[in-house]
Amino acid sequence: MTPPPEDLASEDAKIPAPASPDALRDAILSVAAGDADSFAGLYDATSARVHGLVLRVLRDPAQAEEVTQEVYLEVFRRAAGFDPARGSALAWILTLAHRRAVDRVRSSQSQSDRDVAYESRANTQEPDPTGEAALATLEAQRVRTALEQLSERQAEAIRLAYLDGLTQTQVADRLGIPLGTAKTRLRDGLLALRRIVSAPRQRKEE
């Protein structure tokens, strides 16, 4: 085993470890040139994001693992098609990841099967009753940070579409609202999120 480096700056390992957009871009460009070490670095810098998103959409650890693997193979195969002028590396990777996760949701099982499976897994799993519930709560708190600045209706619509993998038609059905209203909430919600994200932000650290 290789010992940990003794003088690695702590910034390199800060949590959540945010790889710089430039570093990710360069890593994909190197991968496109066939560099294995760059791919390992790219995986290390992004796999928690990819797996976290896929797991949230699929709610099934085994499937999330499979899909995450597929995503990275696709990243590898399509690296040469990545155009840094058109967007960030992370957006490119998460776009591939989200699409695959949603495809899997829609092809494998119905939404309700998936929910039932998740429920039964969560309810019947042996150990500690506190654990799973506590973690679900933590997860909910964290995802709220990005969406919490939207109106609850907009945030709910975006959550159903993006994190639960519903189509806009399914979002309307689920919420019992007309399709036009669902579309408006999604559009206004994402545009509002864009304004919030691109507004000058307060420094989060220190």
Partner: peptide
């Protein structure tokens, strides 16, 4: 697409 990245930040 850049904005959508924020939706799963924290997961």
């Amino acid at each position: 697409r850049e904005t959508a990245v924020e939706i799963s930040a924290g997961l």
